[in-house]
Design a protein around this nucleic acid. Structure first.
Lengths: 185, 185
DNA sequence: ACTAATTTAGTACTAGGTATTAATAGGTGG
DNA sequence: CCACCTATTAATACCTAGTACTAAATTAGT
């Protein structure tokens, strides 16, 4: 059966969202209307053509992958003195939280702190040996986390303390034992 | 000046990799050859046309984002008994390692272990309070990590021990203190 | 100078459209 | 019952970024 214009257009919006690779032809077939009708619909709804949609996705994820991938330190480093201390900034976004409750997943706080601890150690290759963590209070979606790392010991193993704050409030604390790896390995 | 065929083709390969949105026309302009030459080059090199390249990217990242995002547990859960124990599997890929040395970054091992520990606790909302970690040996690109979680204490706080193995070898160890959060909060 | 490789030109055709104009079908109000 | 309106369909010209193919022109190597 044929749907009304309104219904068809609503379905179209959803369809394009979950199946962005639909051609006008395929949509016309699905809703038993002509291809011209579909095109009028797209105009009215402001849905770009297939190629445009595809390009948008490709572009979006092109930067996305770029910024996600070779990022050596999780978060943005705002200050760094090798073997002394460093600071980084991370805003908690959708991708960092549990969907159910909007609370940041522990491993993101850990990742910010750990990668900063590694970065502050002056060695070609620094690796974490042990760590002890305290999640002081849950961090919510939208909160801005400042991680402050300080080197507290420099023997064979380096100890780095990291405190993560939201505003003035301590939300996470970690102590890392980092070692400088040899070349041959 | 005009480059030799070989040089041009090598440059083309690189160009397409870092700028996948180049049209044949633009490439022809850049290398001062005709559009047909570029097309012959693409044939020989097996480089698909612009629209194909764009579509590939869009498709890749379509699943990519899908699989990356709403993944509640990092890694693949192979076994789970609530409040008792669970196992998950994670293969170390490019995106998990330091580019320089191919060693897995600590926070991925942590993420696998921590998310598994959270999953095994039978509560609507479980959060990590404290953790202590030991990175026993560096994990290399391509290695397959099996994380085994066991609940070792069930009072107000739940304690979960996680051992991560590559083959039979212990590579990472963690003890998590998890608490069950109240609804109001 | 001659052959082979390389490059360019040109034509027909394709998908998946845009943009525009015009025709048709189905109801509604007066 | 006719006029009008909305929705739909049709038809045509044009676009981009190509493929596939044939043929000619140029350049390089020996």
């Amino acid at each position: 059966m044929r749907l009304s214009k309104k219904e068809r257009q609503q379905q179209l919006l959803k369809a394009v969202e979950i199946e962005p690779f639909l051609t006008d032809e395929e949509m016309a077939r699905r809703y038993h209307v002509s291809i011209q009708t579909i095109r009028l619909d797209r105009m009215e709804l402001g849905i770009p053509e297939l190629r445009g949609r595809i390009k948008d996705m490709a572009e979006k994820n092109f930067d996305h992958v770029r910024s996600l991938y070779p990022e050596e330190v999780i978060g943005e480093v705002t200050e760094l003195t090798l073997d002394v201390g460093a600071t980084s900034f991370l805003e908690i976004r959708d991708e960092h939280v549990f969907a159910r409750n909007g609370i940041a997943r522990g491993h993101h706080l850990f990742a910010q702190a750990n990668s900063l601890a590694i970065a502050v150690v002056d060695a070609e290759t620094a690796l974490t040996a042990t760590a002890s963590l305290r999640f002081v209070r849950p961090v919510q979606l939208g909160e801005k986390c400042i991680a402050k790392a300080r080197v507290t010991q420099k023997s064979s193993r380096t100890q780095v303390d990291v405190n993560t704050l939201v505003g003035n409030e301590l939300v996470f604390q970690a102590v890392f034992d980092v070692y400088r790896a040899k070349e041959d390995e």
